[in-house]
Design a protein around this nucleic acid. Structure first.
Lengths: 361, 361
DNA sequence: TTGTATGCGTTATCAG
DNA sequence: CTGATAACGCATACAA
């Protein structure tokens, strides 16, 4: 009976067994089974639970698999198993280049555990958060990584409802679930402490747009707070808000120079901005740090290679990525694990900053 | 009959209709149908072909959908429709940071057409190409993007066999299928032409490891060829092969300096290396371009902001990304389109290069 | 306009 | 160890 059934199939089913070329469809378990002369169940097991299958059958299956070029169908498998081994990542502003480092470490850490990363960025034109989550969920991801902290609570609650494991990255706001990030307040404190110790009294700040960007907000807030603590002054005519980027930093610094403010130090929101700022100062013939100190938050790895090398708070992004992956994997394994991971930051002093001019010589 | 059938389901099926929380499973079409009192087919159509459904039914379905928090199951949909709206990307050395720009533009261009990008990097420990393709194919991607040109023919033939649309990016080798890339030979020519015109006679080259990296190979080959054409000399003691990266460029340039070669210009394989090299020259007190010119291939966007601003061949990576996306989309639409896209490159002269020292006033 | 029924390719359960 | 078969959730051709 069964034998006959399989024997009857071929006409539309790649009868020659000559790989996928012969038929329009690509080979499935049925084809392999037919070729070997066993049932689909046996083939399935031979592939995913070899120990349950006799040596000979297993070998014949193996051979048939290669002969027809069988590749398992993930969708079918997902339906049957109710899991996809896929982790979705929602990445606002992928452009914020440092995210790339994150994604990279995430991808490799997850891959080691057999998971694949599914990237999604909000539609720039139509960034409806609810839509986005639905879109991702409809791909049947087993878990989710939320990059950045501006995901609306609405999104988080949906995830909680469906009890989908998730982790927020680049934030320490653990109200809605596990998170991993830096203490931006502390980082800002380190920067300002350093400037204050150097005798700086009046500083400027060149940061990213704060609207809708909690990271930028946190950095700015941390800086203003630390400045208040030390009794320094944040000069309003040297506070700028721009896109993160080399060119933007360059242009912004030019404006600051043109405004002839009396600050002795500029704090930059990230190293792209700082690189641009340094270039602008260089071009204007302003000595760094002789006339102006520059310090920055370091999202990337090129601070040592700028001119002069940039003093930064180092934020180890790849460590954040692997921490996130670990957190996610323990949760996928059903364990609880920590709900919040604070990646330590560190001030690294380089030649772009020094004592305030008034104090010199 | 039918009514009764649906009515019978609830006990195990989220009877309260209180969203996904009530039952263990998440809501499916069946749940929505039961709630509205129509068949699953109707619900399916109401969602994906609204014009086929009466105004009232549609509205009631819509409401039920929200009530139970229904999210379509992509795997099931994929099985039924035989497509996933997913494009796979195979990305060797994701670390080669400039790839990130590519991925970004790809993602957004594909997203606009409703496609999602599935990232895959070869397993560093076990980079078996065949395995990798199988892994990606088993996710049922509709198409594939191959980043870099070191994908073995074996991989390409598998794709051809299964007639899966694909495009190779960052290569002009169109032997196996459509591709989009830069003419690295030409780019190298531009650089050397420029140096030759400036009177340079002896140059060095600081590039990426060539083994298994055709991009690095092409750049080196192009440089040596152009050098021969102009009758210049490539000083062997100033030819280095390292990882692409800031630090690597820095260290390598230090070695060149220590070796006291007599080159008047260094050609760098990419701008990360060049940035490191510039920093090393700066630290060593060697004037650029007074004593040494530096030129580079520009994979990124920071060349203008280094010190001094770096003269480069500009390789517009994001254009390459969008070109790749366009190529893929036309193919997914069934059209033929071009099989090879050559993204134009351009030399951009900046202050890191000038006439050879011997020629100066 | 709506209902019904089948198929998509696997896995898992339950018999042999 | 192996075979048969029922899910899995959705789209769609065919009926009504």
């Amino acid at each position: 009976m069964s034998r006959k059934k399989y024997a009857a199939a071929p006409p539309s089913r790649n009868p020659a067994g000559e790989g996928v070329v012969a038929s329009g469809r690509s080979a499935s378990l049925v084809d392999v089974a037919a070729l070997v002369g066993v049932s689909v169940g046996t083939v399935s097991r031979a592939l995913s639970r070899p120990e349950m299958i006799s040596e000979v059958t297993r070998r014949r299956v193996q051979q048939a698999v290669e002969q027809v070029g069988y590749v398992p169908n993930g969708s079918a498998r997902a339906m049957a198993m109710r899991r996809t081994m896929t982790v979705g990542a929602i990445i606002p502003r992928f452009g914020s280049i440092s995210f790339a480092t994150m994604v990279q470490t995430l991808e490799s850490a997850l891959a080691q555990a057999g998971y694949t990363l599914l990237l999604t960025a909000p539609d720039r034109l139509n960034p409806e958060p609810a839509k986005l989550v639905h879109k991702v969920l409809s791909r049947n991801v087993d878990a989710l990584v939320l990059l950045g902290s501006e995901h609306p609570p609405e999104v988080l609650t949906v995830l909680a409802q469906r009890s989908i494991p998730f982790v927020q990255v680049w934030t320490l706001d653990g109200r809605y679930g596990p998170c991993v990030g830096f203490d931006e307040q502390l980082a800002a404190g380190l920067v300002i402490d350093y400037l204050a110790a150097g005798g700086h009294r009046r500083v400027g700040f060149l940061g990213g747009y704060r609207a809708g960007n909690q990271r930028a907000q946190a950095r700015f807030a941390g800086v203003t707070r630390a400045i208040a603590r030390h009794g320094l002054t944040l000069r309003e005519d040297a506070v700028l808000e721009v896109e993160y980027g080399f060119r933007e930093g360059f242009d912004a610094m030019r404006r600051v120079i043109a405004a002839r403010t009396d600050v002795t130090a500029m704090v930059c929101g990230n190293d792209y901005l700082a690189a641009g700022a340094l270039a602008a100062l260089d071009k204007a013939g302003i000595d760094v740090p002789g006339q102006m100190s520059v310090v920055s938050f370091n999202d990337n790895e090129f601070a040592p290679f700028l001119h002069p090398p940039l003093t930064t708070v180092h934020l180890p992004i790849s460590e954040m990525g692997s921490a996130a992956a670990r957190l996610l994997l323990t949760r996928l394994a059903g364990d609880a694990g920590p709900s919040s991971v604070n990646i330590p930051v560190e001030l690294i002093e380089r030649e772009s900053a020094g004592p305030a001019p008034a104090e010199r010589g």
